[in-house]
Design a protein around this nucleic acid. Structure first.
Length: 359
DNA sequence: AAGCCGGGGTG
DNA sequence: CACCCAGGCTT
């Protein structure tokens, strides 16, 4: 593998970055460790444009790491609701508490220490250290992976070995000083110029040092991994009302939409119909209640929701418990007024269903 | 090494 | 639709 003249490549890239970087909120405060930590966590697998409004709203409610550490998880999830990958919010909350309660509010001082915290992997640790703490640490995200693969014309299949090789390259190309700017420049180039599909090689500042460009194989790099199918999962979701109140339930602390609230759902397994699923859901909500359960009015149309690796198809039902005597369900559930909906963290799809059912 | 975890932007 | 996004964690 040919190595480009690194000093010149670094200089050209940094020059381009200083002139062309996008004005992003977290770039106004590069050495604010809390804000950088927040941004990096929100940006995991999430595009910049999606993050910005969440980032701003979050900082109004949790301006400091102390305020975040002191908050209830419910409140934290509420400000993450809709952003996806909710373990990030739980982990960030937990990390904030560790920093405040166990370290007296003092942030970790090295990448190794950062990686001890939940939700902080090698990328995030490297980003915080290099950008906010001005240390010399490499990063490797989706952008850097693509940029480096092209610079070095790396044709290897995606694999842990390839990832290790790319980390090695990331370490090799980073400059002695200004490592944070260089890392950001690499990501910025990947996001705006060296894009996956239609890279703007005509405006790229470093084509002279790009092996893939020189060999005219930019489009073929990086090698994509084979795509998996997206199976469809069927769920029922039942809006249970009583005296103008809606029954909502907190989902289990881990797993899909962990810790968020929902109108009660239950999977409809193969060779099973919605009525059987409703019976099982009923048992979950009113454990040990053997009385006859009410009939559900099912809507004809279904709600489809696309996730990355699966399609969710929901059958929506409605139950009004007018003359029901045993109105108290399990502790994870509660009756709320429609106006109280904004007090609870709902996933995107549940938000959609709520509007559909309530309005 | 592979699966799980959301939701949105984009061609 | 398909692909990918400033990834991390569990199995």
């Amino acid at each position: 593998m040919k190595t480009p003249p690194l000093p010149r490549l670094r200089a050209e890239l940094l020059r381009w970055y200083r002139r062309n970087q996008r004005p992003l909120p977290w770039r106004n405060c590069p050495t604010d460790v809390y804000r950088q930590m927040l941004a990096e966590c929100m940006l995991q697998q999430t595009q910049v444009a999606t993050v910005i409004p969440y980032y701003e709203r979050w900082l109004e409610r949790f301006p400091t790491i102390q305020s975040l550490a002191a908050a209830e998880q419910d409140e934290v999830l509420k400000y993450w609701a809709g952003l996806g990958y909710y373990s990030r919010a739980r982990n960030l909350h937990s990390s904030a508490q560790q920093i405040v309660q166990q370290r007296g509010g003092k942030f970790p001082g090295s990448a190794e220490e950062w990686m001890q915290l939940p939700g902080i992997g090698r990328y995030t640790a490297g980003a915080i250290c290099s950008i906010a703490q001005r240390q010399r640490q490499p990063i490797l995200d989706g952008n850097a992976r693509r940029v480096l693969s092209r610079w070095f014309a790396l044709r290897a299949q995606p694999s842990p070995r390839t990832t290790a090789k790319l980390w090695q390259l990331a370490e090799q190309v980073m400059p002695k000083n200004n490592c944070g700017d260089f890392n950001q420049a690499m990501m910025e180039l990947g996001a705006t110029i060296c894009r996956p599909r239609e890279p703007h090689c005509d405006t790229c500042p470093v084509t002279r040092y790009c092996q893939a460009f020189q060999q005219k194989i930019v489009q073929k790099i990086p090698v994509k991994k084979s795509t998996r199918s997206t199976p469809t999962v069927h769920l029922i979701c039942v809006a249970i009302t009583h005296r103008h109140r809606m029954l909502i339930r907190r989902r289990p602390p881990r797993g899909l939409w962990g810790g968020l609230w929902e109108l009660p759902t239950h999977p409809v397994s193969a060779r099973q119909d919605r009525t059987e699923a409703w019976q099982q859901l009923w048992q979950e909500l009113w454990t040990g209640n053997n009385a006859q359960q009410p009939e559900v009015n099912w809507y004809d149309s279904r709600v489809r929701h696309q996730l990355t690796h699966r399609t969710i198809e929901l059958t929506i039902g409605r139950v009004n418990m007018t003359s029901w005597t045993n109105k108290t369900p399990v502790t994870s559930a509660r009756w709320i007024k429609p106006a109280e909906r904004n007090d609870y963290a709902l996933s995107r799809v549940m938000s959609k269903i709520w509007d559909w059912v309530v309005l």
